[in-house]
Structures are given as C-alpha cells and as structure tokens.
Amino acid sequence: MSKATDVTKINEKSPYYDITPGNQIYGGGGARKFTTGEWRTETPVVDWDKCTQCLLCTPCCPDSSIPVKDGKREDFDYDHCKGCGICAKVCPFKAITMKEGI
C-alpha cells in the first residue's frame, strides 16, 4: 500500500537518502503547505454588506484563494492570495477593495 509523501519533511537541508526516488511525490495538492501570501503588496478585503454572493470573483482567482462552500464564497485564503486584484476589478458590486500591504 503506497503512502503519501510528507512534503514537510523534504527541504533544502534533507540528506540524499531522504530525497524521494525519481523525485516522485505521492499524494496530491501538497503545494497547499507552501504559502505565497507574503508575495502580496496589496490585499483584497471583502465588504460583506456589499457582497451578494454572485461568485463572479471566484473563477477569476489564479491562486484558488477564494474558497466556495455550500454555494457561498468564504473569506480569502490569505496564506496564498498574491494580491493580483482581479477579484476586486470583476466584482460588479464593488464589494472588494485592495488595501495597501499584507
């Protein structure tokens, strides 16, 4: 029975015998454990009073950082959002604003 690779145990200090044979990785989506949120220079913020849950922002996120649950969007995944601002631009209700900084 194959086991998922624990990607948190493989890093730039790992000895050769801890590097997976053929650099193969078992189990999907391990990138979630790598945060890209600190790339941001601007941060999207939702005004929940204005948000109508139209979801038009959700498919436009290049970083899968607008989670949808039970047909409704949740708050941003700030661990991964890179602050590109696409969501703010597409929101027809101006419910998302970009704030300076992380």
Binding site: A31, R32, P59, P62, H80, C84
Partner: peptide, 19 residues
C-alpha cells in the same frame, strides 16, 4: 489545482487550468 504554486500574481494560465 491547489494554491501554493509559484505562478505570477494575476496569471491567466492558472485561471484557465482551474476551470
């Protein structure tokens, strides 16, 4: 397509791939 990839902020390629 999980987040945590290193595509540039605003990349069109990953928007396409997700969909």
């Amino acid at each position: 397509l999980a987040p945590g990839h290193r595509m540039c902020a605003g990349c069109g390629g990953t928007i396409a791939a997700r969909m």
